[in-house]
Design a protein around this nucleic acid. Sequence first.
DNA 1: AAAATACATATTGTCTACAGCTTACTCATG
DNA 2: CATGAGTAAGCTGTAGACAATATGTATTTT
Lengths: 240, 240
Amino acid sequence: METETRSKKTICVEDLRRKVLTQDLEPGAYLDETELSEAYGISRPPLREVLRQLAGEGYVVLHENRGAQVAPMTHKTLRNFFVAAPMIYAATTRLAAEHATPAQIVRLKECQWTFRQAIKSGDAAERALGNERFHSIIGEMADNEFLTPSLRRLLIDHTRIGMTFYSPRKLDLANQRELAADQHDEFIALIEAGNADAAADLAVAHWELSRAQIESFVTPVSLHFPLGRAPGAEEQRGAS
Amino acid sequence: METETRSKKTICVEDLRRKVLTQDLEPGAYLDETELSEAYGISRPPLREVLRQLAGEGYVVLHENRGAQVAPMTHKTLRNFFVAAPMIYAATTRLAAEHATPAQIVRLKECQWTFRQAIKSGDAAERALGNERFHSIIGEMADNEFLTPSLRRLLIDHTRIGMTFYSPRKLDLANQRELAADQHDEFIALIEAGNADAAADLAVAHWELSRAQIESFVTPVSLHFPLGRAPGAEEQRGAS
DNA sequence: AAAATACATATTGTCTACAGCTTACTCATG
DNA sequence: CATGAGTAAGCTGTAGACAATATGTATTTT
């Protein structure tokens, strides 16, 4: 067992990533360097390094002399996401099935176990983060430094979108989440078997399921939404 | 026309990018923070920010307590590159043809003009950088934040590989470079016409040409390479 | 009264100095 | 002579103080 003392800076990076993914920090929110540096018990120079790193990873955007902003989600985000996701997911999953090591498969299984616990617990954030981690590991398995950057970028917004549209009340969505978890088990089986073609197909199917969930919110069934309600529900600026 | 005074830090970022792309800084070389900060007339904290940013962009790799290293090119690099490149190039080019703005097309034409000048001049670095810039602009045209990260990562190593295998002596390669430049003109025409399918096909053809050039070096006619050379090529520390 | 300018405040950007880690060299010892 | 530990030098990591830039407010001028 490794003791592995993570530095304050590492904790800072990981916690900020987490806060962005769970929308604990909302898209478009501006970050205060002094405030954050005090919160994580480090000084401003290393914190600024952290922000640069997160900018490189796509979590935040830096504006000269105007600080850091959590990467915004514009009207184009969803459209671009729909274009890029199936291609990258299919490609990385195929490569994962071809290249995965036994140690990585063990980690993936552990991750899936944690993921199912999160589903049972009903904690939206833990479920979203568990799903992100699962697909991150598949990305590691693919072991292609040229595809990983886009995959990581996709997973950021996939996770944030998943948080946005999460709705524990709708039973059919709960069923779809169960189905998604079952597909994760299939991922493990196919990757372990080295069945690249089937794994790529499953990636597309998994994506289609997710897409259907998202679209059911973006293009809702007409009469389900009472229209004269909650005028301030869309209070954040920038929403057309 | 704006005057646009670039800060020292911006100059530093751009110059380091350039040096990595042209192999003025060799893959695997370690960077000295003090040395670089003095060279660019800034202190170490902002330089460290620059290095973090470049790490996020894939130009360098950071090692805890051991400084920054120019992103190495391992034996797997070329193989992974061959897998990812055609897919990403085709996808981004297709999107570029669908989304390019007139202003971007003007910039692409200017870039192509500069590129042809570089070819005439015979300057390998300028030619490689001009090519990188041309394809970067196509990436901007695609306007998809989820695909751009992988494209940028590909262009880094494509440019470095192009520098590695550049050989002005071989006449057939000179002809192939002419052909590549002609294909650039076709890119412009197809993008301007909004012909997405043809643009995607051209991207694949352009890639195949480049691949053939690379492979003619990687898999050379048997007797051209003296084999008993450079025993310590794995652990170079410092590039002089 | 409205608009523009000047000033005050807050936040970002940078520098110097110091602390901590890694490594290479030296010296002692088997 | 080889091997290991101890030590010193150099580099990375961090902190606190200072400089520069943007923003919001208040005042002045038309």
